[in-house]
Amino acid sequence: MIPINYYIALSAILFTIGALGVLVRRNPLIIFMSIELMLNAANLAIVAFTRVYQILEGQIFVFFVMTVAAAEVAVGLALIVAIFRTKHSINIDEMNNLKG
């Protein structure tokens, strides 16, 4: 059986990749994919721990997280479409109308 540390490490690596992707990329679609990556890194960590502690609630939470991620992507993509319709661009750095 694969030790838990491996799962944790993989989860951390995935999360880091996702976080960096959010920070450095300007394409909102890529940013969304990075967010999904972080969510899945968290899912992986939860599943790994539920296996260690032999409890099922964590696995149920993972389903919730996947559902929320799907909903989030639906809302997010709708937003991107709406933004594109008004600005004819989806460059994230041009969406700074609320700056102080």
Binding site: A19, V22, L23, I92, D93, M95, N97, L98, K99, G100
Partner: peptide, 16 residues
């Protein structure tokens, strides 16, 4: 006010 620059990614950086 300077932190409120409108760049989503910089906000995300602060969150991080």
């Amino acid at each position: 006010r300077r932190f409120q620059n409108g760049f989503v990614r910089s906000y995300a950086l602060f969150v991080l």
